[in-house]
């Protein structure tokens, strides 16, 4: 733009200040430098502000699921956990669904009930012996392996341990 010829002014209006106009290139470059600096600083700040704390990893903790001896063997059991976590500027309940399975009340397979396709909740179907996701028809075995449908990965295994006869999971 700075290279364009300036439009002539009406005699009545006056004349361009030719001496000042001779500095057009420098002033133009100065403007773009200053504006660019301001723009980058503003956008950078806005970007960092908007990302905020979004990328912090999920806070995890061990939660008691129940007494190990009370789990029925050979059966998949649904559990709902609820913990209080910091959610941005407020404390809120984080709740989720887990499915636990044991053959001997010592080793436990605990699966997160979130479908690995697009995050819907899977349902355990005892009769058919599989987990079914109602959204896009994904199916998993009781160990969480994909039987059919769109899920790309097995259901997520949740770390589980038995301490003093109590089953604990890391959620």
């Amino acid at each position: 733009m700075a290279d364009n010829e300036l439009p002539p002014l009406d005699d009545e209006k006056g004349q361009w200040d030719t001496e000042a106009v001779s500095r057009r290139k420098v002033l133009g470059a100065l403007f773009w430098g200053v504006a660019g600096l301001g723009g980058v600083a503003t956008l950078g700040t806005a970007g960092r502000f908007l990302v905020g704390n979004a990328l912090e990893p999920k806070a995890q903790r061990w939660v008691e699921l129940g007494t190990a001896a009370d789990f029925p063997t050979g059966k998949v059991q649904r559990h709902v956990y609820s913990i209080t976590v910091a959610d941005a500027w407020r404390d809120s309940e984080r709740r989720g669904v887990l499915y636990a399975y044991t053959d001997d009340n010592e080793e436990f397979v605990v699966l997160d009930g979130t479908c690995t396709h697009l995050g819907c909740s899977v349902q355990w179907q005892e009769d058919a012996d599989h987990f079914a996701c109602p959204c896009h028809a994904g199916f998993f075995t009781r160990e969480g392996e994909v039987v059919s449908g769109p899920p790309p990965r097995p259901l997520q295994r949740v770390d589980a341990k038995v301490e003093n006869g109590i089953v604990k999971v890391l959620v």
Partner: peptide, 13 residues
């Protein structure tokens, strides 16, 4: 996904 959610899970953010 986390940028969209404002965190690991869906919540206030």
């Amino acid at each position: 996904m986390q940028l969209m959610r404002g965190g690991a899970d869906l919540g206030q953010a």
